[in-house]
């Protein structure tokens, strides 16, 4: 009886493990199958570097360079804002703040992470967008910079919480050894704690960026969604994710446009896969340095 029970449980666990792999594979195969179809009509180069995205003109022009650049501008902007802020915030929470303040701040960061992105997008639309318009004196506030600021808020909790874990993992003996040699708190953080936690910090940043690249609803609401090649942060842009979300519902299944949207999915997949891979590599790097 007991043996039978073990067998069933093991079988179930095995099956669910295999199932998740199969699902991932199926999704991947489906994505490839649909996405690669677009290359019957457009060359890879023209697709990636074409300057015009007019999917419903006749014939359609399917160049996604404006979309790639849109994602890039928004992501770079969000990174520039969120990485220094996130790192500083994690250092403050992990190393400097007294116990009670640390708990409050950690709760705050978790709360920020718990806000659904659509809600952040909505708040951004009614508060941030007019502010950006006024502050920079622009014809519209629906710009890359508004998206960047919004996404920075979303990346922050990821960066802060993962980096805080990395700081926590630094052995107490390193800190005490440094302090006992007469180093100040800041010298200890700067010379010992941050270098020892560097791989975790890189992973935190990468996962934060990954979150930004994949974000859809909030950016769709506040970046203006114009599929033109952006030259500054103060222009409306359209990201790859927003394009898929906005157009998938209106396209005819089996059309060139439809396949092109899947191909954008492949590009996104490749980018996030790369970012996660880099994060993983740095997380699992041996922490001991020469």
């Amino acid at each position: 009886m007991r043996k039978y029970y073990e067998f069933v449980v093991e079988g179930l666990i095995f099956a669910s493990g295999i199932a998740s792999i199969i699902f991932v594979l199926l999704i991947f195969i489906f994505l490839l199958k649909e996405g690669l179809m677009v290359f019957r009509d457009v060359g890879l180069f023209d697709f990636l570097f074409g300057k015009f995205w007019y999917p419903i003109s006749e014939p359609p022009r399917l160049g996604i360079l404006p979309l790639i650049l849109g994602s890039l501008w928004v992501t770079v902007g969000a990174t520039i804002i969120s990485v220094p802020l996130g790192i500083a915030c994690a250092i403050f929470i992990g190393e400097i703040a007294p116990g009670w303040l640390r708990e409050i701040l950690k709760a705050g960061v978790e709360l920020l992470a718990a806000i659904p992105s659509i809600v952040l997008g909505f708040i951004g639309l009614v508060t941030l967008v007019p502010l950006v318009k006024k502050f920079f004196g622009l014809p519209t506030g629906l710009t890359a910079i508004a998206g960047s600021i919004m996404l920075a808020f979303m990346a922050m909790p990821t960066i802060v919480s993962i980096m805080e874990d990395a700081l926590n993992a630094v052995p107490k003996g390193y800190r005490e050894g440094s302090i006992a040699m007469g180093a100040t708190k800041w010298q200890t953080i700067h010379r010992i704690v941050l270098p020892s936690a560097s791989s975790g910090i890189i992973a935190a940043v990468m996962l934060g960026i990954g979150r930004v690249i994949g974000e859809t609803m909030a950016v769709m609401m506040i970046t203006g969604n114009a599929a033109v090649i952006p030259h500054t942060f103060f222009q409306p842009v359209r990201t790859m994710t927003a394009t898929i979300a906005a157009e998938m519902g209106e396209t005819v299944q089996g059309s060139e446009h439809y396949f092109a949207l899947f191909a954008i999915g492949i590009v996104l997949f490749a980018i996030t896969f790369l970012v996660n891979l880099l994060a993983d590599l740095s997380l699992h790097r041996k922490p001991v340095r020469a």
Binding site: P171, G173, Y174, E176, G177, S178, A180, I192, P195, S196, P287, V288, R289
Partner: peptide, 11 residues
């Protein structure tokens, strides 16, 4: 101060 556990810095 010399601690109970040898604790060199990771450098």
């Amino acid at each position: 101060m010399v601690f109970a556990l040898p604790s060199p810095l990771p450098i």
